[in-house]
Design a protein around this nucleic acid. Structure first.
Length: 259
DNA sequence: ATGGTTGCTTAGCAA
């Protein structure tokens, strides 16, 4: 079973790339972030024509998340369903082939100390509560998406440059560690404990040509799924060429053993 | 400190 997470930075702008990626990589489940489109304008027909079912939690202009799979995703949750009146569409969950799948787009936070930064930390706190009550660590589940957090210095090409930013701040890293405390395993680190692997490069400042990258897109998996984890890779080719997303897809391969 | 780029929307925001 192959599960992908990819911040596409507009699903409409990236539709041709997305369809080519799906055909090339042949995943089973794809979690998308930053759709930047309402549910009504989501390119459902083009994806269905290619054989994909989609559940979406969209929003005009900003944010938006989706889960794609070959079969219709079941038991869909749109948002965290808590008491917060947050209008931003940043989380969707569904069950595919017996695996609980969550596609999340954590707020960026803009600048440490800003109102958006406070919102990011609040949102991560809500995610912690939601995951604790909605993800069963005894069952196969994956919480994946754009976390806008580089967990450690090994996840950053230039740690000193990024140290004080919203992607590397200790409070953001502490929130990531807290999620792992719910018996969730950082899939890439389980199979590649020391590799320098990046998933995002800023469009500005020649981020990709200089490989000024960070690993901020993750799959956090429960122990039953971690036991089946075979490999994790980043499709860097998707960051190349004409008009790429600023994120590359992360691909995790799971075997059927150990269930 | 600023600017560099992209997408959505149409000058400015978000990332």
């Amino acid at each position: 079973m192959r599960i992908v997470t990819w911040n596409v930075n507009s699903v409409r702008a990236r539709l041709d790339r997305l369809l080519a990626f799906l055909a090339r990589q042949g995943p089973d489940v794809v979690c998308l972030q930053e759709l930047k489109v309402t549910d009504a304008d989501f390119p459902r027909e083009a994806l269905e024509a290619a054989g994909w079912k989609a559940v979406t939690h969209g929003q005009k202009t900003y944010n938006g998340v989706a889960i794609l799979s070959r079969e219709e995703p079941a038991d869909v949750e749109w948002g965290m369903g808590d008491a917060d009146t947050d209008p931003e569409a940043r989380l969707i969950a569904a069950t595919v082939k017996g695996v609980r799948v969550v596609s999340a787009y954590v707020p960026n936070g803009k600048e440490v100390g800003s109102e958006k930064w406070a919102y990011k930390l609040r949102w991560l706190g809500r995610l912690q509560v939601w995951a604790a009550s909605h993800l069963d660590s005894r069952r196969p589940a994956v919480l994946c998406g754009d976390f806008n957090i580089a967990p450690g210095d090994r996840d950053v090409k230039n740690p000193e440059k990024w140290r004080e930013t919203v992607l590397c701040h200790p409070d953001a890293r502490a929130a990531f560690e807290a999620l792992k405390g719910l018996e969730l395993v950082d899939a890439l680190r389980q199979v590649r404990p020391e590799d320098q692997v990046f998933t995002w490069w800023d469009y500005r400042e020649l981020g990709f040509p200089k490989n000024d990258g960070l690993r901020i897109d993750h799959l956090l998996v429960t122990p039953p799924l971690a036991a089946r984890l075979a490999s994790v890779s980043v499709d860097r080719d998707e960051r190349k060429g004409k008009l790429p997303s600023d994120h590359a897809p992360v691909i995790a391969e799971f075997g059927e053993f150990g269930e």
